[in-house]
Write a protein that binds this DNA or RNA. Structure first.
Lengths: 105, 105
DNA sequence: TTGCAATTGTAAATTATTTACAATTATTGA
DNA sequence: TCAATAATTGTAAATAATTTACAATTGCAA
């Protein structure tokens, strides 16, 4: 197997992450955050979902999920929810910057 | 922002992919393969899901999804379903090898 | 102990998925 | 061409998962 081929398969994962959209149950499984808590955070405006029409199931992309994981990290450390959300904003910007660089490559 | 920090955030994505488990609706959105077709492929034994109990909703991990995408690629090229499945086996091994190397790092 | 932040509980309605049976549409070799 | 097989698609009824809304509970700091 050539190294070039392996890299091709891998770089594709950034397209994959881009398409990745999952429901609240999956997010809960992935992050360990209860669905009830995810909805609460959304009610509070801390996070957001992609869902357009109300009544339809919530959909989250990679960025949303990443954000939840970061917030969870910080609240576990002892920060309040609002403080965590504030801090996460800055980290999110970093991540986006990193990802966009890698996508271009 | 330090480069080290960015790398840390990124390497975390391999853990993320590991935890990633999604339902059939999401897989359909991500891959563009209709849910009906995904179930058909599963019936035929071409792909598999993680679901243990029957009647419960199907769950797919990253490997499953990747496999579907590869099969779709090949059938679109004109290969039969069985031939595609055969070819994909080998490519899957490559991908796993690549991923496991990156996870260790 | 009061007030607020944060989380959790749950019922009824709705949305999404499952299974099972069947029909339809290519494709291929005789 | 035609028959056989591959591949996909349709759908109804049952079940699983999610939504919203109203409320209760828990934890913590002033």
């Amino acid at each position: 197997m050539g190294k070039a081929k392996a890299n091709k398969d891998l770089s594709f994962d950034f397209d994959f992450l881009d398409k990745l959209v999952v429901g609240i149950g999956e997010v809960s499984q992935i992050t360990g955050i209860p669905t009830r808590q995810i909805r609460y955070w959304e009610d509070k405006g801390i996070i957001s979902s992609l869902t357009e029409e109300e009544g339809k199931n919530r959909r989250y992309n990679y960025e949303n999920i990443k954000k939840m994981l970061l917030i969870k990290e910080l609240t576990d450390e002892g920060y309040t929810l609002d403080a965590s959300a504030e801090k996460v904003k800055k980290r999110m910007e970093m991540i986006e910057e990193t990802l966009s660089k890698l996508q271009k490559k």
